[in-house]
Each structure stands twice: as C-alpha cells, then as structure tokens.
Nucleic acid binder design. Structure first.
Lengths: 182, 182
DNA sequence: GGAGCCATCTTGTCAATGACAAGTTAGGCT
DNA sequence: AGCCTAACTTGTCATTGACAAGATGGCTCC
C-alpha cells in the first residue's frame, strides 16, 4: 500500500468505490459528488474520470459490484427460500448504498455489459431458489417473492414503515415473508 | 389565466410542479433542475425559490401532492383488497414522477408537516383496506400487502423485471397479488 | 542499464446549477 | 390617491461535472 505516493495511488479505483459507499452512507445518493470522492481519496478532482469516465460510469461499476455482493449474500443463505428472502433484506440494509443505486437505472448505464451479467447472475440465484421450493407456478411465485422482499427492503430504507415494526428489519421481514407461504 | 402577463404568472406554483413532473418523465428525477423548471414556466431562474425556498422544498410539495393522489387512487379502487393493490401499482405507473420522489426521503424534507399528514392519510386507507379483508393478524397482512405491491411497482419502474412478465403491469400485478391470498 | 512508452494522475478551464442578496413591479386595500 | 406587500427580476458566488492538455513514473524491451 504505502499510502500517498504522490502519483500512482495503488488502487484508486477501489478507493473511489469505497469512498462512494461511505459518502452515500452519510448524505444519501443524491448528494454524491465526484470531486468529494476525489478529496476523500486524496487525489485531484479529475482523477475519477480516468477510471470511470463520468459519474454514471462510477455508479455503473458500483451497481455491478452490488449485484455481485447480492449474489454472494443470497448464496450464503442456504437452501431455505424464506431465509434467502431474509438475506435479501439483510443485503439491502447492510449494503444500502449499493442497493439504492442498483434499482435506480436513471443513475447509471443499466445496459452496461458487466452490470447486465451481474444482474443476471443474481436473478438466477433468486429464480432457482424459488423453483427448488415450490411445485406451483414458479414464475408467479418468483415474482411474488421478489416483490415482497424488495418492497419490504425499499420501504424500510425509505423510513416509510411504522415504528411499530420494530428495530430489526430482518426479524420483521421473516414474519412478512412467512405470510407468503401461509 | 391570460398566459404571460410579464409579472404575476397567475399560478406559478402549480405550473412549476407540473413542469417538474414533465421534466422527470423525460429525464428521470436525478436530472431535475430548478432553472430548467423556471425556463419551462417562462419565468426567471430565481422565481421557484420564492414559492418553494429551495429544491428540497419543491420536492416536498411534490411528495405531498403525490400522497394525496395515491389516497384518491386507493379510495377509487373500492372495497376489494386485491384491486386496491392493483390501484397502488397503477398509481406508480401513471404517476411515476410522484412515486419516485415519495419514497426517496433524502430528496426532500420527509418530516414536513404537510407531507407527514398526506402520508398518514394514504397509510390509513391501506391499513383499513387490509383490516376489512382478513380476520388474521392485520398487522402482518398489512405489511405483506404493502411490501408486495410496493416491491412490484418499484421493480417494474426500475425495468428490473424480465420481459416475460408482459407489457401490462397491472395485469401482472393482479396475478402476483392473488398469490398472496392463495 | 537505459530509452521509450503508456497508463495514471495533474492543472486549468468552461458552462450549468443551487442558493442567496437586493432591487422592481403590480395589484389590492384603505 | 397612495402605499404596502406578495410576486417576480437581475446579479452574483461557490460548487459541480466534463473536457483538454500536460506531467510523472513504473515497465518493457532491447
């Protein structure tokens, strides 16, 4: 590493992505500024452009990274469909910045090849999880399961849910998800 | 009206909100610019500040208007819970700009009194709709119903759903929602 | 071992934007 | 008639994203 070697940061690309996550955690995605990221990484204001082209480029990379992280999180939940759903909510809470970019296609280049591939991989995991679980129409079940976990996660992150839900999003999600299989 | 009377636009506040919806329909919420709205309304670049204070103020007004529109849409769906859910999705598709602001609290002053009241009203309609429908835990059912319609609407708007779902979001929503009551 | 090459990062600049300050106009009220 | 205040204007500033052109230094290849 040997932090701060004038030129050649070492891993500026990763440092900028990390800074972006950090900045979004503090002030939300709307306030994100490339120049602020450069400042955080200790480089000049134009350095990010070299790695990502423009702001949309950086968010594209962040989205791709996010879909890969989601894939890992879902795989780590094992074979139980309900736990996969809980893992989805857990990912949203733990990787809020990634999550908030991933499903906002106006912020990045959603048709980028790398993002598309990563999104497809995550979709596969979700789909096969549902197929493994139920004998009924896996198509509808897949949509319903995805909708309910995505909706719950989004509403939680937006602060739209009543406080009565409690402080633990994953516990609440477990209850809600199980309702789908009642 | 007598459009364009030099000073005193007549209904600039409404005109700016309409322009905001129009602008967001064209280029998404991230690209929204107060100066562009002023241009669309044919007023000076500082005119919006007088009515809304700042950008967050304008989006706060838009969010409040959105929650009122949502309340109307839900009420118009009648007593059937599934149809209320379909109406929720229909609202998201038909009033995309409002919807995309409403659940993004970092864009506006979510604790504004007017917004809070409007959000509460919409919440009431949703909650009583669920209570009327089921005898089981209305708390969990309410969360599950809200999650599934919000998730479906969000994913649809984000273009995240596979094309196989078809071109009609409300029809697809009907199928998915009915899965919740299977 | 050194010469050149190229990715990496810098400095400099421009137009656009949000926010604020201070002035101007018009329409209602007394 | 006069004024008084809400509604809008012009002007300005710091910040930002994007682009252009230059500087630097590690790496390869001979």
């Amino acid at each position: 590493m040997t932090r701060s070697r004038a030129y050649h940061h070492g891993d500026l690309r990763r440092a900028l992505l990390d800074a972006a996550v950090e900045a979004m955690a503090e002030s939300g995605p709307a306030a994100l500024s490339l120049r602020d990221l450069a400042r955080r990484a200790g480089v000049s204001h134009a350095a990010p452009a070299h790695h990502f082209g423009d702001k949309a480029g950086l968010l594209t990379a962040l989205a791709a990274q996010g879909f890969d992280l989601l894939t890992d999180a879902l795989r780590g939940a094992g074979d139980d469909l309900a736990e996969t759903g809980v893992a989805y909510v857990g990912f949203a809470v733990r990787h809020r910045a990634h999550f908030e970019v991933m499903f906002r296609p106006d912020l990045y280049r959603a048709d980028d090849a790398e993002v598309t591939a990563a999104r497809t991989r995550a979709g596969e995991v979700l789909r096969t999880g549902v197929a493994r679980h139920t004998g009924r129409s896996p198509e509808v079940d897949s949509l319903a399961a995805w909708s309910i976990v995505h909706g719950f996660a989004t509403l939680w992150l937006a602060g739209a849910l009543p406080t009565r839900v409690g402080p633990d999003p994953e516990a609440a999600a477990r209850t809600v998800i199980s309702r789908l299989f009642a």
